[in-house]
Design a protein around this nucleic acid. Structure first.
Lengths: 332, 332
DNA sequence: ATAATTTTTGCAACCGGTTGCAAAAAAAAC
DNA sequence: GTTTTTTTTGCAACCGGTTGCAAAAATTAT
């Protein structure tokens, strides 16, 4: 149906190699030849078949974009930034939804079958074993929103979740809260664990402040709401650090449901600073996570790795900052 | 690096065809042969290269998932459903972000270069010329959330936007509003046009009710908020039909900003019924669009087309229903 | 046991490209 | 105008598979 290399060669009266070379940059073709070939190609509407090409070049320019976060609105932005960033560099995202997947095997095999050049794992809730499995197959992999370790197995780009936890604690301390708590995402998410660690670590310097923690079942509105409802019925803290904005919004909803107000009765600070946290009817005080930088850095790293697969794994962490809005009482 | 067909053949001491056949279902292989090959394959960790295979079979099982909606939270759910649905059928979504794209040429060529088996265009704001360009290249295409016409150029799956507009109008009429208005998305979006058409069409049966319309610059919170702020400063209507939930939420925010309340001062009805519309602090009365059915039907249609490419284009429309929450005054 | 039929297998060509190598052509040096 | 050097070109093998066809092997019928 569509024109092939051979068709163009025949039409231009040249060898197939010549045609191939005009479409490979850096190859040796005379100007005259190039003209001839390009003319024939244009007449036939030819453009090279990337997949056939990939057989010999061993480059598909396909990047597996692997995630299991399809419920947190922030990930729409994540996908937007990733797809555009990859496209701009001539790469193509093959989207893999790991929502219910527990075993890396299948996804790994699939990525191999499509010969992706690399995989970006965009998730803070996927266990590290996933990205490690990819790496073990010599597949270049970047774990975006992954866990920081001083000697990482795979490239990690994100924030220092421990530090973010500290930051949240400091913020609550400064505002004079005496009884605080952490409301985390799924307990097995490394991000949730690390944020708690930092939170408690900072609070250990303030023995006069009591603190506790619990986990919502997912990074979702409903989960945050349910957990906060439960907490409020018992013996609630004065202020909560919710490990994610969407969780915070759920928690806020619970607060209002119980006839309470934020920040007057209950203080809440989130993490992410997603677009809707700034919406007037939400107006959440939160810790800003620099998504754009995280993603463009992830892509850069991936591009670099395509040229240099044995690059030593590094961790790239970006600083966060508190965005003050209306759900925490003012600093004294 | 990874084992190839030939490696397996050598190891098992059989021909490459034999190996190929064991991995092609429906091919003729004796049980004994299959055993032998599978053993060798397992030992080498072999699995067939889909792209090489696609060269001869002319099937890549790659589906272009094309969209320009990366700001409306409902599309996160759309991507979730599409990716899972496609995966479940052994198809792989190649995500294409058309956000700033005005010319179908590039995207079309790219999809051709990767030999996708088909393309799903998921957008209500992309001009029909895009999907038509794909179709013209004999590429099976489904336009999800596309415009209904009685003799469609390409397969369309979605809702009857005209009818949805009527439904919204009826709802406002029944609740006794005397002065109503339509707040649309980007004017060139077919969905925005059609919803307005239905809205006005229904209202033409009620000459005692005055109505007007205007458009927000995008289907986004900010755009809805800005437009509603403008409207409220002039001569606002009693109730608005906002052509999208995220637009409605922006509008609601504007209403509160001006010191007004919904539904007491201004009534609002949206369209989509996205998850967060049900959140307690939003609580938007809206028209439910059956996303799950729309998407699973789109996938079914695509799968059907892969077997029968010249299938006559059809339109599949799903009925909507009003979801009553708290932003419209009750029926009398 | 032999012939006829069916099933299984391997050969070799092909899918749409790329590329090392050597020959041919063009350019530079003498 | 030769010779040397450089550039351009085509040949042919290859990337990792599939598949039509005919031969070989296994079944079934006689």
């Amino acid at each position: 149906m569509t024109a092939t290399l051979k068709d163009v060669a025949t039409r231009a009266g040249v060898s197939t190699s010549a045609v191939s070379r005009t479409f490979t940059d850096g190859a040796s073709v005379s100007l005259k030849m190039r003209r001839k070939v390009e003319k024939a190609a244009a007449e036939l509407g030819y453009s090279p078949n990337f997949l056939a090409r990939s057989l010999t070049t061993r480059r598909t320019k396909l990047i597996g974009l692997v995630s299991n976060n399809f419920h947190n609105p922030i990930f729409l932005q994540v996908f937007d930034l990733f797809t555009r960033g990859l496209q701009d560099r001539g790469l193509r995202p093959l989207l893999v939804n790991l929502s219910d997947e527990v075993d890396p095997e299948n996804s790994l095999r699939m990525l191999q079958q499509y010969s992706v050049d690399g995989a970006i794992v965009a998730s803070s809730t996927l266990p590290p074993v996933f990205s490690k499995a990819f790496r073990d197959q010599k597949l270049p992999v970047v774990h975006t929103f992954g866990r920081y370790t001083s000697s990482p197995d795979v490239h990690v780009v994100g924030i220092d979740n421990v530090e973010a936890g500290r930051m949240a604690a400091r913020e609550l301390v400064q505002r004079g809260y005496k009884k605080v708590a952490y409301l985390g995402g799924p307990q097995l998410a490394t991000s949730a664990q690390d944020r708690l660690e930092g939170f408690e670590n900072e609070l250990s310097r303030h023995p006069e402040i009591t603190h506790s923690h619990s986990y919502a079942s997912a990074y979702s509105f409903e989960a945050g709401r349910a957990e906060m409802l439960r907490l409020l019925k018992e013996n609630p803290a004065e202020a909560y650090f919710c490990a994610d904005d969407v969780l915070s919004i759920g928690a806020l909803s619970a607060v209002k449901d119980m006839g309470l107000r934020a920040p007057e009765d209950i203080g809440i600070i989130g993490l992410n600073d997603m677009e809707m946290s700034g919406w007037e009817n939400i107006n959440l005080t939160t810790i800003h996570q620099p998504i754009r930088q995280i993603i463009s850095s992830s892509i850069e790293l991936m591009v670099a790795m395509l040229d240099e697969p044995d690059r030593y794994p590094e961790a790239r962490l970006f600083p966060c900052r508190v965005v003050e809005r209306g759900t925490l009482r003012p600093r004294p």
